[in-house]
Each structure stands twice: as C-alpha cells, then as structure tokens.
Design a protein around this nucleic acid. Structure first.
Lengths: 342, 342
DNA sequence: GAAGGCAAAGCAACCGGTTGCTTTATGGAA
DNA sequence: TTCCATAAAGCAACCGGTTGCTTTGCCTTC
C-alpha cells in the first residue's frame, strides 16, 4: 500500500502464498505444470477482492501480449467540432466493443500532438481505431508493432483496413435528386477545399459537384461559405440575384443557418428554395423540420469499423485487410421540392 | 514483439557502456554523483540515433513516479449526446494541458461501466477530471489513491474540488429578463426532472423556474418536453391555447425545434413569442439567428477545471480544495422581445 | 522400506527501463 | 611515495507483473 494501489506481492503476502501463485490464480492460468487446491484459490481470490487489488496494466503490458485495450487515435481533432459525426462513430464503436464476448476497454486520446510526434499511449494496446488521421510516426509505429487497426473516414496505408463513406456517390445522388425535381440552378455551399491539407470530404463533395454540373451542361455556382459566415448574404447573392433554386450544403449546421436565413428573407423552403445537406443520421433526428439529407451512415461506420477490428484481433493474420467504401443514402424529407415556377 | 526494436541494453552494448550510463545520458540526468566524458556522451547519443532507439514508454512509466497522464472520466455518458457542452469542456481542458510547461497526455475513457464497477484505468494517472459523475467505487479509489481531481458540472465529495455552473442564478436571470420585457405567461420546456437520478441541472432549472414564477405571483406552465417530442404540438398547447408569450427551453436543440415549429405555425419570433434557452457559447455561435440564451460558460468551465487540476498536481497538498460556482450569463440576442400586444 | 509419480506451490529470471550507491581511475597535494 | 578527493562509469535492486522450471510433500506401488 505504499504508493496507493496494492500490488501482486501485497496480495501474495496477505494470502500467505507466492506472487506467481496469485498471478496464476487470478489469470486462471492452470495446467501447464501448475495447479492449486480449491481452498487456496478461494482464499487468494477473496484476499484480492478484499484489498481491492487491480493489476497494473503497465507492468502487465511489459510482459504480456494482450491487454484488451482498444485505443482511439485522433480524438482531439475529430471530436473538437460540435455535432461531429465522429461522436456517433465512437459511441457505436464502444457499443460493439462492450457487447463483444471478451470485453474491451476503450479509450480515446484527446491530447494534442505535434505532427512529428508519436501519439502512442504508454501502455500496450490490442487494437487501434484512427479517426480520419494520425501522425505519420504513429502510423509507422502501429504498423511496425503489428497492432490491428482500422482507419475511419480517412486514408490508410497500403495493406491497412479502412471504412470510408462514399462522398462521391452521395454527391451524385444529391445532384441527381435535384435534377429529377427539375432544378438547374444548383449552388454548392461549403468551405474552401484545401487540396493539400484538410479532409478528403471537402474536395470529394466539391469536385463531384463541379463534375456533375459540367456533365449535365449546367453552370456551377460556388461561393465558399462556412457556417460562421453570414447565411443571409449568401442567399441574397445566390437565390435573389443569381436565381438559384437549390443548394447543396456541406454540413447540417450550415444548412440550418441557411434555413433560418431563408425565413428571415421570406424565402419559402422548399417552395422557393430546396436545400440538401450532408448529415449524420442522429444529428438530423433531433432537428425539425426534417431536412433532406445525404446520410453519411456514421452509425454504420462505427459498427463496421469495430467489427472489422475485432475480427482482426481475434484471428490475427488470418483476416484480409479491407477498404470498405460505405454507401451514402439520400433521405428525402421536407426541404426539397420541384423549383418554384410562378 | 521484439520486431527489431532496439532496447537500452542494445544501445549500451553497441556503445560499449552500461545500461545506466546510456539511460542517464539520454535523459540528461547528470550531477547527483554521475558524470560522463564528452567523448562517451557523444558516442552514446550517436549510437542511439544510429540504432533508431526509442525508449519504451511502458517500461518507463513502470519506474517513473509521474506518468504525466490526465484521465477524464465519464466520457461515455457525457459525450454521447450531440452538441454537448462537455465537448467544449474537454477541448478546453486539453488546450490548457497542452500549454502547460510540462506537457500532459490526456485520455478520455469512453467505455461503458456497470454502476458497481470501477472506471479506473489500469495505469497510473497523475490527475483526474470527472465529467458530471463517476461511479462511487471510482470516486473512492481516486480519493484513496490521493489522485488530484476536479469534478466538472457535478457533485463532488467532501474535500474535493469542483467547477459547476450556477443554473439557479442563470434561471433567475432568464426569468428576470422576460419579466422586465413585460411577459407574464412564461412557460418552461424541458425534460421531466427525475429528482433521484439525472443531473442537477434538471431540477435546478425547473425548480427555480417554479419558485421564481411563484415569487412573482405568476402561474407556471410546465409540460415535459424533450427535443424528440413534437414541437408543434407543444406550441399549439402553450402559445395558441394558453396564450403563452415566452418560453424558457432546457436546451438549444429544443429551442431550435421550437423556432422551426413556430415558423411552420406562423408564429413570429420574437414578436409573438420569446424564446430563451440554456446553451453552450460555441453551439450558439454556429447558429443563426442569434438565440437569446443563458451562457453556461462551458469554455470557462474547462479552463478553470484544468487550471485547478494543474495547480493541485504541481503543488500537492498545498492547494485548498475549491468548489467553484461559475456564474452564468444572459446573452440577449434576437429571440426575445416585449410580448405582442395587438 | 525405497522408489516413483503427481499434485501443489515456490524460485528466480525476465520485460525495459531508472537510480542509489559502489567501484575504479586519475590527478594533485602533502 | 602515499593519501585522498573527485571525476567517470558500473552494479544491482527495483517497478509489478508473467512464466519456465524446480522443489516439496504425500500417496502409491513394488
């Protein structure tokens, strides 16, 4: 009890047996030239419980191969935005992990890391989930140490596994939907796509919008527009001046703002203006009225990633690395309609 | 396992010195009865670099007294709701920790735990942040191990530190604001307050609403209303039938829904209906139009908690435990106005 | 009665570092 | 030449577990 937590030796002393005996009993490592009398076993277990003994994972990690710890990398950048899909992803991952036969402990690293530093925790981990991305050094370490991993919504190195939503397909569906309704003046509202940095969804959505518009011989109307910009200015520019009848918005917060601004400007949605956005199904559930949205399937993303990871952990070396492209779904609700022809 | 990762001994052998010498040189632990010739020092450092030696953090944290790890408890319940203030809290905590002179690693526990189980990680932690609450067993362990901790937005045991927003004062300000505008038919919209379970903000806001109304001789109008319920039904009942002119909403998502429903029902906000809600400043920032809201100060909450914790860690035993009641602020924007008198 | 076999538990090395203390080498003073 | 202080580096215990192998004791069996 010197430094707080009781150690294996403390339990051993209290129970009057040796360290190794305690270790073997608590880890149920019988056979292999070892056995105990039931009486001793009970006493040890009881003593451990009484002292509130909990193995020190750090020490355990030093010698053992498995710690049943799953570590989620990238929490700091991925969870820092409000209403982020990663929240749903993480929740679904923990849910799957909890219901797994062996239960796993899940931790999320929230620290900031320099881009040239390792994000590896000090303890040994059995599996890793990478939210969008981690530093190169971290990735190298993960691969070198042979830790099973799955990248969620991000690029992964050769031979790795990933689960990524198909933003290109989703964008195509959105445009298709608007075209079928009869729209031709379709604008895109989203942040500027920085091709080098940033997430692939930015260029994916934006570029697909451009190419789809071009494919159908339509003019593309793009004005970089972040959720913090003035939605009213944006609508004045696009809807009132350029005659835009439909907007594809990068995120649901941006869409909500557009909706509010439309109310202020007396632009009826969906009669005069259709809005479709990319959205997490949960985020959308709590919002009324129902936005027409492209479901990123974050719930499924988390689930699939967790199952993929579990599979890799449980059958090491026998699972083919997979790159799963998760189809997005168009959910038509109350913010899209045929264009106003009055 | 080995995977070629060179160990301290490998470096020592290659450089022709002992383990301890390498350790001391690489950690720059001179003095205290130890010194090296510059020649040897250079050779060791060079050898380490050549072998691409990286210390095994697991082994390191076994012996070191400090692990520089901060653990955040309660991530699973606190971060599972979208748009949660805890997200802001966590982000601000990591920010403070990162800018601390010694840098700390912050992890968030996302596992689910039975209420009679310990949530303690198996590795040593230097400090703990508890989001709202943790299991009793966990709390006991933290106290017993003498780990510095701060409870954020929740109750803490005798002698512990906590940072909590003053929901009672905030509610009083909100009601006061509405009264000054001339409202008298003020409704409260929020989840049912389960007095035993649940968070103190539920009864705090609800009860203060009741007592304030009573204090001013006004009728209280309460209909349990969650964000998933129909906002339109709620408005029909309160505004259209009972003549309510102002609503205090528990959360910003609920307020947003009320706003949308008001549009649908052609109820003008704020002309015919004032809405004020409790909200995270960040969540509100991304929303237009500007809601009048009670600022919970989650940013400050995280900052204060982190600083308090750092203080406790750096001056162990010399810091008085504090219970900080953070004042909420009323931010008047575009959803409150004098009642409609047409 | 001695040898053999097996159940039950302990010894001690090891994982990869850190650190208090000891040993060895070196040089200057007496 | 002898002694001693000090610089330079090594020894070995320790952190808290795991595990191969050995020891102890008891019961059979010949």
């Amino acid at each position: 009890m010197k430094s707080g937590m009781p150690s294996l030796s403390d339990v051993a002393d209290a129970a009057g047996v040796s360290k190794s005996t305690v270790s073997r009993i608590l880890n149920n490592r019988l056979g292999n030239g070892f056995s105990v009398r039931d009486e001793v076993r009970r006493k040890v277990i009881e003593t451990a419980k009484k002292l509130n003994y909990r193995p020190n994972l750090i020490a355990k990690s030093l010698t053992m191969q498995s710690t049943r710890m799953i570590h989620i990398f990238g929490g700091n950048h991925a969870l820092s935005d409000l209403g982020n899909i990663y929240q749903t992803v993480v929740n679904n991952i923990t849910q799957i992990m909890d219901s797994a036969s062996k239960d796993y402990d899940v931790t999320v690293d929230m620290s900031r890391h320099a881009s040239d530093a390792s994000e590896m925790p000090a303890w040994k981990i059995d599996g890793a989930i990478i939210l969008a991305k981690c530093t190169d050094i971290t990735m190298d370490e993960i691969v070198q140490l042979g830790i099973p991993y799955v990248v969620v919504n991000g690029a992964c190195p050769e031979g790795g596994s990933s689960v990524v939503p198909d933003d290109i397909g989703g964008t195509q569906m959105a445009i298709q939907h608007l075209l079928e309704l009869g729209h031709s003046k379709i604008a895109y509202s989203g942040p500027l796509p920085p091709y080098l940095a940033g997430h692939s969804s930015l260029p994916d959505r934006h570029d697909t919008y451009l190419s789809e518009m071009q494919k159908h011989g339509l003019e593309s109307i793009f004005w970089p527009h972040d959720i913090l910009d003035s939605a009213e200015d944006y609508l004045k520019e696009t809807v009132l001046e350029k005659g835009v009848t439909a907007i594809v918005a990068y995120g649901h917060m941006g869409a909500l703002n557009l909706l509010q601004a439309a109310h202020s400007l007396n632009i009826a949605v969906p009669e005069q203006l259709s809005i479709v956005c990319y959205c997490d199904e949960y985020a959308n559930k709590v919002m009324s009225p129902g936005l027409t949205f492209i479901d990123l399937g974050s719930q499924k993303m988390g689930k699939v990633a967790a199952e993929l990871l579990l599979d890799q952990i449980q059958r090491p070396g026998r699972v083919e690395p997979q790159r799963i492209l998760l189809q997005e779904k168009l959910v038509v609700r109350n913010t899209t309609a045929p264009p106003y022809s009055g």
